[in-house]
Design a protein around this nucleic acid. Sequence first.
DNA 1: TCGGCGTTCTGAATCGATTCAGTATCTGTA
DNA 2: TACAGATACTGAATCGATTCAGAACGCCGA
Lengths: 351, 351
Amino acid sequence: MKPTLQAVADAVGVSRSTVSNAYSRPDQLSTALRERILEAARQLGYPGPDPTARSLRRGVVGAVGVLFTSQLSYAFTDPFAVRFLAGVAGAAERHGTSLLLVPLPDDAPGARRAVESAAVDGFCVYCAGDESWALDAIRARNLPFVTTAPRADAGPADRFVGIDERAAARTAAAHVVGLGHRRVALLGDTVLPGVPSGELRLADVTDVPHPTTRGRLAGFADAFAEVGVAWPELTLLSAAGNSRTAAAAAVAAVLAGPDRPTAILACSDVLALGVLDALAGTGGPPCAVTGFDDIAEAAEAGLTTVRQPAEEKGRRLAELLLDPPEDPAAGHVLLPTELVVRTSTGPVPRR
Amino acid sequence: MKPTLQAVADAVGVSRSTVSNAYSRPDQLSTALRERILEAARQLGYPGPDPTARSLRRGVVGAVGVLFTSQLSYAFTDPFAVRFLAGVAGAAERHGTSLLLVPLPDDAPGARRAVESAAVDGFCVYCAGDESWALDAIRARNLPFVTTAPRADAGPADRFVGIDERAAARTAAAHVVGLGHRRVALLGDTVLPGVPSGELRLADVTDVPHPTTRGRLAGFADAFAEVGVAWPELTLLSAAGNSRTAAAAAVAAVLAGPDRPTAILACSDVLALGVLDALAGTGGPPCAVTGFDDIAEAAEAGLTTVRQPAEEKGRRLAELLLDPPEDPAAGHVLLPTELVVRTSTGPVPRR
DNA sequence: TCGGCGTTCTGAATCGATTCAGTATCTGTA
DNA sequence: TACAGATACTGAATCGATTCAGAACGCCGA
């Protein structure tokens, strides 16, 4: 049996409360007694108050949960997510708080249970679509939470750190428009759930369920609408998953087809890099490509992309959770983005 | 006040035990009653059993701690550590276990307390030197743990997943020896604690405190000893931190000096990339460079390096913790490594 | 000498569940 | 009819601490 606080109390001949105080409130007892207690604890091999029991009584855990809506291991595959997590970790570290990475099973009820049974004081939710099941569960537990995007069902007290997805995407598209491109394709991750990689027809951009993807696609469309290229004229491509291979597969057919676009705008750098992979494989006339996020690989590949501050996003999000500002308005943060023009976007080739 | 299990029991008019069973052991009560209870819980907004209380009573938390000896945010800076973590996360996910990333303060007593007060069922310790304070604390708590290296004070029951650092490093050095290099420098991260980046003299490799660095340096030295180049003839460089800039700073002087080495062997890819940075900046005759780990950037940079399986290391380590093998011998895993020869290592330039 | 105050320590209630030995009710069988 | 054996549910003990209202004591000033 592991020794308990009671055992130490008995050994020293004091009450349980006093031993507790020796650990948690040293000012409540004489230094001499405190020393005697700690010494006895050492003798007995008592490792200090049990974290779980302490949490129960205190009502505080000292950890915040990080919720990735997709597979936990995915979080480590996307460089952007990793840098985001680095930001969260840095802030948590400074605050002396642990990070609980919660694995979510595929089924919604299971995932809900996972959220319900996480021992945490709050949640950082990395938004990736419709995670209302998660937010409902968190709200039911009455725990504070923050998200990486303003949500449709958000109240004014709900805090987030995000970017203006639509405006940011628009800058990339405007750049491509400025280069003269009119026959273009837009590429998103899982534009509609369940569809395989490839082309897709959608009456309107509002039909895209995933809010981030929707915002970015809408931003792309905005810039083209301005020069008279309407939504239906834009080829819409969907990759089954945010991976290079899925992206390459998604664009393969359209690159080989008769109406080959002169530019492809992707909703993430990972996708854009996949497009570059595909392009490198096929030959053919040059095709402009843009990405989103500005991960490290983007610079190396010369990818034109929209930069958003990854670590900062994570850091400020965690800070918002860990010490909430007085002013509720300060709980709504939109980070700046920046178009980074590199070599992957050139003018329309003359034929 | 948040409703408790008792409140639900009162609402339905059953005992607390029955409500508990409704959640944890559905076979212990009739389906009808269970439905009624869950419905009442829904009405009351009861989010299910409190995780902390449940952990206390059950004596199980459902989370394992991951201990990085350095800053938590560091873990996200080194690509190797990230991939390792991805492996751990994958295994944990499959097992339905959460991951607790524990931030460690700089001071040893504080760090010890952090380990003592982490609510976990066990620890994955990413070894990075002498973390006996951590292991002592873990042992005192009587928690299972696994490490990424066999440790000096390890008993036969202590489990680990590692590589043969010395033999692996030796293959890299042997390759460099084979290319004819004899005037070489070895570069490690913080070879001695507290020394600034730059050259360093050490009577013997056994004086290096950090076990991983020691093992690799020893392996390098082995290969050179075989062709008659003894330890004191090898230039020893230390970088203050595992970063490209620190590495570049560490090699600057020796690259500019009179006895410029024809090859530099680094203890990690990150350091090796820093050396390449420095080399790109200076010009001068070519200099062979080797790394260690084989991170993604290594391939792009054409870096000759020793590959060790990062995700697999994390995965198998976590598996060792999460379902321990019967056979204690199975708890000692040495993963294979492989020398990957790329363009960064060429023959000695003829002068 | 006594009231008042500060320091040091104690006792009992409490956090929110799980567990297990039982009790009560029902089913089937000889 | 009676008894064994399931099935459904309850009560009380328990997990390991924290907290707070007080008790005991010494000290000071009036």
